[in-house]
Structure formats: C-alpha cells, structure tokens
Computed example of a mutant assay.
Amino acid sequence: MTWGLWESYMLPGIWITIQVTVYSAALAAAVSFVVGILRSSPLWIVRFLSGAYFEIFRGASALVFMFWLFFALPIAFGWQLVPMWAGVLALGLTYGAYGSEVVRGALAAVSPAQREAGIALSFTRMQRLRRIELPQAWPEMVPPFNNLAIELLKGTALVSVISVADMTFAANLIRFTTNESAPIYTLLLVMYFVLAFLITRVMRLVERRAKAGIGQAPPPGGGLLGGLRRRTKTADPVTGTAAAGTPGGNQ
C-alpha cells in the first residue's frame, strides 16, 4: 500500500472510526444511566417501560436496526438520516441497552443499609442516587463499561455497509485498488487492536480514580503493560538485593 492510498483513504477512515466510536459511546452512556436508573424505579410502570426498551434493543440486531434507520425510516416518515448519524444512533441505542443492565446491576449491589441511611437522613430519591448509590456503584460499572466500549469500537465496522467511510470501508477500497487482501486486513486488525488497547488504558485510569474516590485500594494493573510492571524487580530496602514485585503491590 502506497503512502498516497494511506493518506487518501486510511487516515480519514481512522478519524471517522474514532468519531463514530466517541459519539456512539456518549449516546450509549446517556442511555445506560437513564434506562438503568429507571429500571430501578419503585414505580412498576416505569420499570416495565424501561425493561421493554432493554429487551427490545438487546434482542434486536444492531445491523438490521441500522438498515431500518437508513432505508426504512425515509419510507415510513419521509426524512433521511445522514449515514454517519444513522450508524451512531443504531450503535448508541443498542449498546446503551446493554449498558443499562450494568447500571441496574451495580445499583442493586449497593448495600441496603446505605439506602436506609439516606432515608433516615430524609434524602429524596434523587439525592440518594447522587450522593450515596451512584458514587458507590460507579467503580463497579467501569470494568464492564470498558468491555462494552471495546465491543462498540469493533461494532463501528458495521457502518461501512451504509457507505460511511470508516477504517473498514477504506480498507475495502484499498483492497479493490491494489488487489491485496492479506496485508490490508492484517493492518486493519492491528489498528483496531491499537484503538482497543488505548481505550483499555484510559478505562483503567478511570477505574483507579473511581476506587480511590471512595477509599478503595486501586486495582492491580492488568493487560499487557500491567503485567510487565508487576514482573519488574525492585530493590529490597533492607538487604539491598533485587526482589520481584508482588502482584497488586504499589510499584
């Protein structure tokens, strides 16, 4: 692949993939918290409606929903979504449904005694959520949100089928031009891995700060770089000899 093809197709494709990921993740996060909190509501009708949303979007295909937004919506309502925003809407609403279960489960894991303490202090439902439940539940949400963010990144490849010029779309164009499949798709795999790895490192930092914010010990470093850090040797302060770092210890 020549530099001209890389500059003309792949670089803009990487930028489009990043944009779709960020916009979809922002929408999915908003949907996750709204629907997840509503699914914990004491009102049965609110739980029913939010649960219906969760079941519908969890059971529907993101690709088919994307097709429906892009091809069927103009026929039904007479207006056309821009391809990129059709993809963002489909991905954000779908992964937001998955994220709502993460929020609901993390809120349910908060000790009932904490809620009772908020009631004893005459906190309203929103005050208990904001001051007691969400701060304690947030650190437990970060690891599954990390997995969802990576799945969302990989799911952005679906937007190529509605002519959004993301990395996958650009790779297909280059393959048609050069008639080379192995190097093009190998490079595409590497680029998705690099982006996913960056997301993981950012989310690890978010998790450490979230746990520190409620007085919990930060999690041990995970992944490739975390494992390398744990295996580095440090000098014993008493004997002066080198000793392997212990997992979970402060490096």
Rank of each mutant, 00 (worst) to 15 (best):
P219E: 05
G92F: 05
P144I: 11
Q19C: 09
T124I: 05
L134E: 02
Y95S: 07
I199N: 08
R229C: 08
F48A: 15
M126R: 13
S40A: 14
T241Y: 12
L134F: 12
L198Q: 08
I45D: 11
E180I: 02
F70P: 03
I174T: 10
G245A: 14
D236N: 11
S8W: 02
A109T: 10
E55I: 13
W6C: 04
M141L: 03
G223Q: 06
L121V: 03
L225Y: 14
V206M: 05
G227A: 09
T178C: 09
R125I: 09
P112L: 11
A235P: 10
D236Y: 08
P12Q: 02
S8V: 03
G240W: 14
V206I: 15
M10E: 04
A72E: 11
A26D: 06
S32M: 01
L107P: 00
W15M: 13
A108C: 03
L187W: 14
P112R: 11
F71S: 03
G105Y: 00
A29M: 12
G87I: 00
Y98T: 07
W44P: 12
A113K: 09
V102N: 05
N146I: 05
L81Q: 05
A72S: 13
L224Y: 13
T17W: 00
L224H: 07
V190W: 12
A29Q: 01
Q127I: 03
V31R: 06
A165I: 04
S50Y: 03
Q80N: 11
F123K: 07
A26S: 09
R125K: 12
L93Y: 00
V190G: 03
T178P: 02
T239W: 06
L91A: 06
S8E: 13
K154Q: 10
L11Q: 06
S181N: 14
A217S: 12
Q114A: 11
S50K: 01
L195T: 04
V206E: 01
T241E: 15
T234L: 15
Y98I: 09
W85C: 01
A210N: 04
S122K: 05
E101T: 08
A72W: 08
L63G: 06
G92Y: 05
G245W: 14
R231L: 14
L187K: 08
E116A: 12
V34T: 09
L134R: 03
P135R: 00
A196D: 03
M1R: 04
I150F: 07
T232L: 15
S40M: 13
I37K: 03
A242F: 12
K233E: 15
A157T: 12
E133S: 00
M1N: 06
F145Y: 07
V194F: 15
T17C: 01
I119P: 06
R125N: 09
V159Q: 02
P219K: 00
L38I: 10
R204M: 13
A62S: 11
A30K: 07
M167Y: 06
M141T: 03
L49Y: 10
A72G: 08
Y23C: 14
T124D: 06
I174F: 11
L93G: 04
A120I: 10
A196M: 00
N250M: 13
F123L: 15
Q216M: 13
A217D: 10
